[in-house]
Structure formats: structure tokens, C-alpha cells
Nucleic acid binder design. Structure first.
Lengths: 347, 347
DNA sequence: CTGAAAGCGCTTACAG
DNA sequence: CTGAAAGCGCTTACAG
């Protein structure tokens, strides 16, 4: 019987009718069990579950979609970056949660800045028939996109957003605290002139990281000097040009904290160009612990974010919401940790 | 009329029935036009096409899948790497082709080595109901996977495979020629002791790149010295350990060609560790022109591969095959090009 | 707690 | 060259 079932499974697919027949119930009852609906006697439920696993039954998504109101599809809308390490983790986390939840993940890579932003998302959401959307930073902070999804009644979850939206799913990490810790670490190594390169202002992490830097300076009685702070956009090139500005100062910083690893790589690049030894002449710190952090020389002291876990959590919460389950938003942010490597030293 | 149509489109979706009504034909005729089937009078075809664009009609995939024999889904099976730059390009190329062809792309990231390899692919192919599969290197060279897909009658296309399979879609680039060119470049810069770090033997590019190196040595009358050749696995760490071996030689190489950028980054790392100046004391060459190639110091002379274009081409060919169109496999490999940066210099 | 019927929007197989 | 009918495998809405 089992063999026959397996054989059948490998030929034409097992359907709800086969399960119903084996369990001796109607297809509606099988449907109730599959969808974890109430109003099925426990003994019936057990019998159906056994039939399902015996036949290795999996519901046909196309049929579900066609007859029901769900699509079992989640869209991931992201800025397609040159350096993909952050997105790789987001992708892996979202993929894991989708697989576990029986959803399919569809991708929409976008170039920023983008005048067609809203219409691209609209076309994606409509044509791909999405149930929900994941918005990793900085996509979560475009109010037009949020408004569009609200209008289409498509729930969304945001990863590391800048602003809060009441009642909306979002996951964050303790960026400010982590930035404080790493700044404190640098101060305790004896540095007093500490440069800071800010990230892309569109990203939620940018201000938080900057605030952590300022708080640490304050707590350790170092004067905040705006000449030591430069704007950046999270790109390697922006790290280079910010560093060049810092190097022009008469009283050059002895340490530079860049708001991500790519920019820190730019700092190291410029130091090499000017014959400065890192860390002897200059300590350099990054954020994110991307692959380049350990592959560059000297390897970077940086702050590790649990991005994959954050993405997985955001996606899982979104799926629960789509199922109509009660979800409790996480009250604790995810924890970052300082990773110490050779790019920093005591002064 | 038009406005009414648009209004309707935004509410409940436009169906084949609406199009048929507007064009004054049966739904079957609309279906023929949508699927580019023959046996429709030209004037009828035009009328239907107009109705389609007027109503902004898009066929419901779920309905197509449920009634037909296609799923409109392509799977991308890949080794989930630490350094994602190669896969990022593959992903973008495949995504672009799928979008253009009306297919959905599903991802299966895999860890290698993997004992469950075949069953993971089988579950993916069966449960996700795939029409076709894209296999970027090294996934295209597992004969068990190829056999499985043949058995399931799921066509697949391979990117940069090692071996040929008759009548199968695959795209390659002129790795050997590019490796020859870059080796020639190094020789012409006056180097005679040129180290070579091989890639992962599972990858098709590995032997080709090695062969290009050997051919160039031969053509320029340099003796091949097996002590100058080390094994690697395309990882940063393997580049480091191979470089350490090369540095131990009494007659140290003055240039090292690594079979990809990550390993070349490892070479640069080790050079820094030993206080060797790149390029004054050692020229370093990579392959792939990934982001790290331009972000490391000194920036790497490397070989650029048009990976995105290759992936797009492979996917487009696969989609054509799935549609039953006649496809001609590309007879010319894609062209790589040498990118010269500061990690190499004249001796 | 359980089920019979209708229908989702297409394609297939067939008829003309 | 065109179309009427059946049916894909589920869920919805309703009945009991």
C-alpha cells in the first residue's frame, strides 16, 4: 500500500481526492486539516494527517491560488548593490523562513535613486500577485512605497528601518549601543582624535551609529569636533573621499570609524596611498563584518550584525501575519557584537 | 470605455473572458493569441492584441499552471558561497531573462560538499514544480544531478561547465585564452618566475585557466616549474596557504597569478604579513573582477568575465527550449578581458 | 463537526 | 481558421 502510494506520488501527483479516499472523509475535511482550521474531530484529524504523510501529499499551489484569496508568495524588494554581502544574508534569512512557511520568495532588485520606484513596486506587487513584502533598509523608509502597499492591502515587514510605523512589523538591532561600544573601545585604546564617516542618510542605521559615537565621546569627556565627521554613502568610493578630507586636517585623527566595512576599506586604501601604516599610524574600524573585513589587509575591527537572523525573523513574522495568527512584535532589538582584528591598536 | 476597462483592471483582475468579449471572439482564440499559437487570422490576431493591451490583460499564472502542463518556474541551484559576487551576477542575469520571458525564478542555495545533494535537488524540483533548472558552476558538473533532471524530464542549462553534454544548453567564456593573455602580460613585464594558484578542481574554469598559463609559458620559452604551482579552492584562506608555500621556495616567484580574486586577496594579505610590497616585490593577478579587486590595496590586475550576460543568455536559451522553440546553441564563447590595475608592475 | 456544490481562469482535446 | 465543453485541484459559501 505504501509502495503503491509512493509509486503514485512519483507518477501523477497525489491530490486532495486521494487523501480523502484513503482517510475516508470528504475533500473539505482534508482541506480543513491541511489549513489547520478548527472544527475537525481530533480522531478525524489524526486519520487525515496519517493519510497525508502516507501518500506524501502536498497541496497544489496553483489550485490553492486559483480558488482562494492567497498567493503564497512574498516579495523581497531591495536596492541592488554593488557589494552584495548584506543582501546575501537578507536573502538567505528570508529564503529560510519562506521555505519553512510554505511560501515562495520573489525578488525585485531596484536601482536607487529611482524615479519609477513606486510604479516598479506596484507592477511587481500586482503582476506577481504578492501576499506580503519584505523591505530591507533603505527600502522600508520610502513613505510612497508604504502608502502604496497599504492601499493594495499588502502587508509588509521592514528590516532595520529608520522610522517607526505603528503596528507594523519591523526588526532592528542595537546599532547605537554597538557603535557606542566600539567607540568606547577606541577611546580606551588611548585615541582622542577619532574621525567618523557617516553612512547613507536614507538608512536607519546611519543616525544610530553616529549617535552611539557621539554618546561615547560625551561619556568619556572627549570634545565633539564636527571637523572630524564626514558624510558618506556606504560605498567604497565615498569612504575614500571622506578619508581624504580627514587626512587634510592639520590635527589628523589617529583613528577613523567608518559606518560600514566598504567605507573602512576605502579608508585603508587611502592610508596605503599616503604611506600610512594601519594600525601603527591609524586605527580603522568598520561595521557589518562582511567578507572584505577579514580579507583586506590589515583585517578590520568591525561590528557584526546578525542580519540573516533579522531577515528570517521579519519574514517569519510576516508569514504569521498573513496566516491571520496573532503575532507579538519583538520588544528586544537583535544584538550586535564587536569583532576585534588587526586594524586597531593601542596608541 | 477605456477608463472603464482600467477601472476594472484595478479592481478584480481582467480575465480572458473580458478580453474575448471585447474582441468579439471565444476565449480559445484569445488563448491562441496569448500563446503565439498558429491558426489565427491576422486580422483576428490584431483585434485580440488590441483588446489585450486596452484592458491591460495579463494571464493568471495559477490558472495556466492548473490547466496546463507548464509551471512557468525556473529553479536556480547554486553553491551558497561566502563571497557572493559571482552569484550576484548570475542571479541578476537569470532574473532579467526570467522577467523578460514571463517566468518566475526560484532559488535553491546549497552547501558543498553535500551528501544530500541529489535528494535536495529532487525535493526542490518536485515540490516547487519546476519547468527548468539553471546550474551555474560547479553545479553543472554533478552527473547525479544531471541524471536526476533527465529522469524527471526537466531541461537544464549550465553556466561555465567543465564537461560537455551533447545537445545540452551551456554557456562558457574563453577562460583559457584570457588566462593566456594575462600570463603573457606578466611575462612581457619581465617576470620569469611566475607562481600559479589553481582553483577548485570541481569548477570548469580551473583547468582552463591553468592551461592558459602553461601555454603562455611554453610560447614564451619559459620553463614550466611544478613547484610554482599550488592547489587552491577559490577561497581566501586557500589563497593564503598556497601563497605561504610559494613564499617558502628558495627562488621565490616575482609574480603570482591566482585563479580568482579571493585567492589573490589572500596572496596580498600574506605579502603584507611578510612585509613584501605589492607590486614592487611581487606582482599579483586575480580573476573575475569582483568588488574586492578594486577595493583592496593595491587594486588587482584581474580578468573580467561577463557573468551576468552569460547567465542571462543561458536562461533565455532555456526558456526558449521550454517553449519548444528551435534554439541554436552559441558557437562562440563569451569574451573575457584583462583589467590592469596597480598590483602588477614591470620588473 | 462534516460534506456537496459551485467556481476560480485558464488549457487540452476535440469538433467543425 | 474558430469555438464549445470538460477539467485541472483546490477554497469559498452554504447547508445540515
Amino acid at each position: 500500500m505504501v509502495d503503491q502510494a509512493k509509486k503514485k506520488a512519483s507518477k501523477s501527483a497525489v491530490t486532495i481526492v486521494d487523501v480523502a479516499a484513503l482517510a475516508g472523509v470528504s475533500i473539505k475535511t482534508v482541506s480543513r486539516v491541511v489549513n489547520s482550521e478548527p472544527n475537525v474531530r481530533q480522531s478525524t484529524r489524526t486519520r487525515v494527517s496519517q493519510a497525508i504523510s502516507e501518500l506524501n501529499y502536498r497541496p497544489n499551489t496553483a489550485a490553492r491560488v486559483l480558488s482562494g484569496k492567497r498567493f503564497y508568495v512574498i516579495g523581497l524588494v531591495y536596492e541592488n548593490p554593488n557589494e552584495f554581502s548584506y543582501m546575501k544574508d537578507v536573502l538567505n534569512g528570508a529564503l529560510k523562513a519562506c521555505e519553512a512557511g510554505g511560501y515562495t520568495l520573489l525578488l525585485l532588485p531596484l536601482t536607487l535613486p529611482n524615479k519609477e520606484l513606486v510604479s516598479e513596486v506596484q507592477i511587481f506587487a500586482t503582476q506577481s500577485r504578492l501576499d506580503g513584502v519584505i523591505l530591507p533598509a533603505p527600502m522600508g523608509d520610502y513613505s510612497e512605497i508604504n502608502a502604496l502597499l497599504d492601499e493594495l492591502e499588502i502587508p509588509f515587514a521592514r528590516i532595520a528601518p529608520k522610522t517607526d510605523i505603528a503596528d507594523n512589523i519591523s526588526v532592528v538591532c542595537n546599532d547605537e549601543e554597538a557603535s557606542y561600544s566600539v567607540t568606547k573601545f577606541v577611546i580606551e585604546q588611548g585615541h582622542t582624535r577619532i574621525g567618523f564617516i557617516k553612512g547613507d542618510p536614507e538608512h536607519g542605521a546611519t543616525d544610530k551609529r553616529f549617535n552611539g559615537y557621539k554618546s561615547a565621546l560625551k561619556d568619556f569627556k572627549l570634545k565633539y569636533d564636527s571637523k572630524l565627521v564626514c558624510d558618506g554613502q556606504f560605498s567604497f568610493e565615498s569612504g575614500k573621499s571622506a578619508t581624504r578630507k580627514l587626512f587634510k586636517l592639520t590635527d589628523r585623527p589617529t583613528a577613523i570609524i567608518a559606518s560600514n566595512d566598504d567605507m573602512a576599506a576605502g579608508t585603508i586604501y587611502e592610508a596605503h596611498e599616503r604611506g600610512l601604516n594601519v594600525p601603527n599610524d591609524l586605527s580603522v574600524i568598520g561595521f557589518d563584518d562582511t567578507p572584505i573585513a577579514s580579507q583586506i589587509w590589515p583585517p578590520l575591527t568591525t561590528v557584526r550584525q546578525p542580519i540573516m537572523e533579522m531577515a528570517e525573523s521579519a519574514t517569519t513574522l510576516l508569514i504569521r501575519k498573513l496566516r491571520g495568527e496573532n503575532i507579538e512584535l519583538p520588544d528586544e532589538p537583535f544584538k550586535c557584537s564587536v569583532v576585534t582584528r588587526a586594524s586597531t591598536m593601542h596608541r
